[in-house]
Write a protein that binds this DNA or RNA. Structure first.
Lengths: 160, 160
DNA sequence: TATGAAAGACATCATGT
DNA sequence: ACATGATGTCTTTCATA
């Protein structure tokens, strides 16, 4: 089981905001000795509660136009074909740099997060790369126009 | 404009994998002097290409069941009401800890990424918190069952 | 598990090629 | 862009409670 006390949570929240703060700065903010903060962070890493440290890429390198695309395959007679076809779609989309995330959705669906420089390019990508896939039952596009929570995810996902 | 050379990109890719590597370790991997790496990283930060440093929370603290939920409001006669209603929905959802991301989608829609401990809890959340909202035209739920790209986004978004 | 102190490693900066 | 060295800060370890 995962057991976190208030100090652990406080440290995690601070590191989430700025993972480059020094242990002494964190110690000062939380009114604890450095050795304690160091010990806690070490434990959080060992317990894999802190999975990794990473950077968020700034706006300039991020795609301006985003959309969630739902792709549903035509349900075929042969089950095994559907399985392999979904896997093929997922693998293909995953390789594209402007496809930021791909997940299976149910037995016959795929959800992708797509980013492009402009609304036009995004529509063209959907038309020319996704809608052309054979034996699709449904393709649905939901543009992401303005985040009120979780906006940072673009800078986290975008490649360099 | 954003100008990145191969060295910048190599550094960014390394930091994306592990933002806690020391400058000397990065310098060694890339066969460059430490002073150069230090200088480049400093510039990348100043140029805001590195926007921030953060931590990814491990699996144990992540929701097991995820879904993208699309919420479309009934288009009313009065435009201004739609605007305020969408804002209200977004603000309300943003406050919930199990709603990891919220974005407006078009004039009359909202897209939310929802996480819960189980498939059942997730369905209950959608039924009891989202479908009960008045004057909705459509609520669509797409479960996220298995990522092939961008899986880390959950550990990035989840709160502590 | 928490803490204080000490030792070593590191980032940072200045200077010069 | 790269090299070197000086400086102060930070991490890490360990002994102790």
């Amino acid at each position: 089981m995962v057991q976190l006390d208030d100090l652990d949570r406080a440290i995690l929240r601070i590191l989430k905001e700025d993972a480059r703060l020094t242990i002494s700065e964190i110690a000062e903010r939380l009114n604890r000795p450095e050795s304690t903060i160091h010990f806690r962070i070490k434990k959080l890493q060992e317990r894999n509660i802190i999975d990794k440290y990473t950077i968020i890429i700034g706006k300039e390198l991020q795609p301006k136009s985003l959309a969630i695309v739902y792709i549903q395959a035509e349900t075929p007679i042969i089950e095994d074909f559907l399985e392999r076809y979904i896997n093929y779609i997922m693998k293909t989309l995953s390789m594209l740099p402007n496809v930021l995330a791909v997940s299976r959705s149910g037995k016959d669906g795929v959800i992708a997060l797509v980013g492009e420089e402009s609304h036009e390019k995004l529509n063209r990508f959907v038309d020319e790369t996704i809608r052309v896939l054979p034996t699709l039952k449904r393709v649905e596009v939901f543009t992401l126009d303005e985040f009120s929570k979780g906006e940072g995810l673009v800078g986290f996902l975008v490649g360099v």
